[in-house]
Nucleic acid binder design. Structure first.
Length: 117
RNA sequence: CAGGCUGGUCGGGCAGUCGCGGUCCUGCGUUGUCGGGAUCGAGGAAAGUCCGCACUCCAUAGAGCACGGCGUCGGAUAGCACCCGGGGCGGGGAAGUCCCGUCACUUGUGACGGGAACACGCUGAAAGGCGUGAACCUGCCGGAAAAGGGCCACAGAAACAAACAGCUGCCCUCACCCCCAACCCCUCUCCCCUUAGGGAGAGGGGCGAAGAGGUGAGGGGGUGAUGGUGAAAAGGUGGUGUAAGAGACCACCGGCGCGCGCAGUAAUGCGUGUGGCCAGGUAACCCCCGCCGGGAGCAAGGCCAAGCAGGGACGAAAUCGUCUGUGGACGAUGGGAGAUUGCUCGUCUUCGCAUGUGCCUUUCCCUCUUGUGGGAAGGGCCAGUCCCGGGUAGGCUGCACCGAGCGAUGUGGUGACACGUCGCCCAGAGAGAUGACUGCACAAGCGGAGCGAUCCGCUGGACAGAAUGCGGCUUACAGACCAGCCUGAGGU
RNA sequence: GCCCCCGUAGCUCAGUGGAUAGAGUAUUGGCCUCCGAAGCCAAGGACCGCAGUUCGAGCCUGCGCGGGGGCA
């Protein structure tokens, strides 16, 4: 997942988490917020807190989320800021598990068309 | 071959596809949050942050005290308390581990018995027993706690310095017992004489001095380990000795100090002589001695942009010399304030009735257009230092490094390491780059087939992720390989 | 990333190197009451872990584990 699709500003994180809508899943939590400016891309931020585990486990969770998101990126609607928050169970999940969880969440948030799956 | 111990190396490999980050090169009717290519891309601990440095800042960091750290010897190093090699004192080894034998069954476990290098000493007729050293692993290390202070609960007479109890005819006083001269009484014998009496001897009894012995009490002196304790009580055993005792003396043993000799760079060890037993533990209690240490830390620090709100405290001055354009400048002495992160000295900064081409204002003078301009004097503000408070969390840099650098190799050294030669440039982000899939072998586990070699299928790869960089330490860690040592069995 | 602080009963805290580690509160049981509350009595319950120093460690030293805070 290239950096241009990434959400990186601390200010952006704060805004999305404060005013966005959240969707929960045992593996991941998705937070969505429509971009205030007419951004050409969708931007995705990935987070893993200390409850996820040690540094190895946090990195593992974030890599899984980025890799799963990469294949889904072309079919997503633009103009959204997303945050994916890892939960502890994600450390033991596989890439396929993560991808199906993201599909479920994105369809519930109406960012991914339902007929896609 | 099996098992144990120690040290070292590696810690998933190869190939392909997709994807991510850095650097360099490059393409363009589209200069992009663009495309293409090359190359590089986590660790032995990147971790903990326990030590030591580099580096940066703090208007000074110097000296002394205080404070903190360290403390066997030698070496290594830029440096280090933890590295290397020695020394001393302890602990483990040894209720463990391994091997052998017997038995039992649940077939790899349990029970029982025996043994475990080697050397020396003591004891014993022997079997054997006891002790010491030592291989291997591991902890600690100044003042052998005689510079001084503190503490040592409970128990105990007492916790280090004497006292108390005890022991003690060594001395004094007193009492008593026993022996006993002289004296007195009684009895018996003999002699003189025979009325009475006298003398001598023997026996018994009474009083009982001095003295000898003994007992007890009190006082004085002596004595040092006897005092059910305790973690710890001033060498141990046996004797001599003494009033009683005691290293007071003697023999053997043990420890320590000093001298000498030998070995070693040294710590120290061995031998020998001599002297004393002058005498507890604790310095990870204070302390003393020696050495080291200024403080903070890359969120250090520098630059840019953006942004906010200010407030308080400090304000007292000289003298001398030189030069001079007479406005001042420089220097010295002394002083004030501040810094020196606890104190003193020293040092540094600054000194204000100062400096400014700044701003405001008052008065006067000149010019003159009731204005303007210029000049002089006075007052205030701003720019100072320190403290408190407020704002920013954006970008660039530090920072990806020619370095205490990495790899290979040679030499020296037991080793830490050093010195050469050749080659290389080797991760660097800022929501934070290493992942996914496939195949092949590798090792491990499980299941199935097979007498077996083996085959098939499934699971699935320890601890763990750089953030300024190094060195050491500590902690976590599935396994694999290599080397050395030890034990047992077998073969040659 | 760097720096600092703290771990004692379920909770909040005391605790000179020398007890069976203490207090409040909570818990449990009993008494009291018609029942409860309050009160009274009693009981159980702890030094973060491992080494070391010491005769002796909650206290001193080292390492580890866990928690908290600060720094542009």
């Amino acid at each position: 997942m290239q950096r241009k699709f990434r959400l990186s500003r601390s200010e952006d994180f704060k805004r999305v988490r404060r005013t966005g809508k959240s969707y929960a899943h045992p593996l991941v939590v998705l937070v969505t917020q429509a971009s205030d400016k007419t951004s050409p891309h969708i931007r995705v931020g990935v987070a893993a807190g200390k409850t996820t585990g040690t540094a190895v486990h946090r990195n593992r969770a974030k890599r899984l989320l980025r890799e799963a998101m990469r294949s889904l990126l072309p079919s997503l609607a633009s103009g959204w800021d997303l945050i994916l928050i890892a939960r502890p169970a994600l450390v033991t999940a596989t890439l396929a598990d993560t991808r199906s969880a993201l599909l479920n969440l994105l369809q519930r948030a109406r960012i991914l068309p339902v007929d896609e799956s």
